[in-house]
């Protein structure tokens, strides 16, 4: 069992909540993916928040459903927002490419979110890296409204 502060295995998955404002859309508001800014740290943020899917049991979709339920109980999740899912190893590989960043993805549970993880050492304003995360790592998009 992974403990607080330990890194997640490469084969495991992380899920990140992406608000409506940072979803990539066409001119008719059809959602197509994620904007690079969906993975940008806010001012003052030291790490990017995400959630560890394997903290829950069951199939991949069961894990997503349980993790989203946990998030909905703890934070505001807008009806039109979505979730990006990525394999831990892929996120690290994308960040390592061209020697851009050596990130760590560690378990950092909070009182209300047991699955909370922190993506550490992510550069704050490397727009190319953020685009790579949006297009190559977080390639699974789950609409909030698609989850009961």
């Amino acid at each position: 069992m992974i403990k607080k502060g330990q890194s997640l295995p490469d084969d495991d998955h992380v899920l990140r909540h992406v608000p409506w404002q940072r979803l990539l859309r066409d001119g008719n508001d059809k959602v197509l993916g994620f904007l690079p800014q969906a993975f940008q740290l806010r001012d003052g943020e030291e790490s990017l928040s995400a959630n560890w899917l394997e903290n829950c049991d069951g199939t991949h979709s069961n894990k997503i459903q349980q993790t989203v339920s946990e998030l909905r109980a703890a934070i505001k999740v807008g009806p039109k927002s979505a979730f990006g899912v990525a394999q831990v190893g892929k996120v690290k590989e994308v960040c390592k490419s061209n020697n851009r960043a050596h990130i760590r993805i560690v378990l950092a549970p909070t009182k209300s979110i047991a699955s909370h993880v922190e993506i550490k050492e992510l550069p704050r304003d490397d727009i190319q890296l953020l685009t790579m995360l949006a297009t190559e790592a977080f390639i699974e998009l789950v609409h909030n409204k698609s989850i009961l």
Partner: peptide, 18 residues
């Protein structure tokens, strides 16, 4: 072609053409 629009945390407008 009209772009899709988004907003960064700090209020900057983002336009995307796909």
């Amino acid at each position: 072609n009209r772009p899709g629009l988004g907003l960064a945390h700090g209020g900057n407008l983002i336009a995307a053409w796909t």
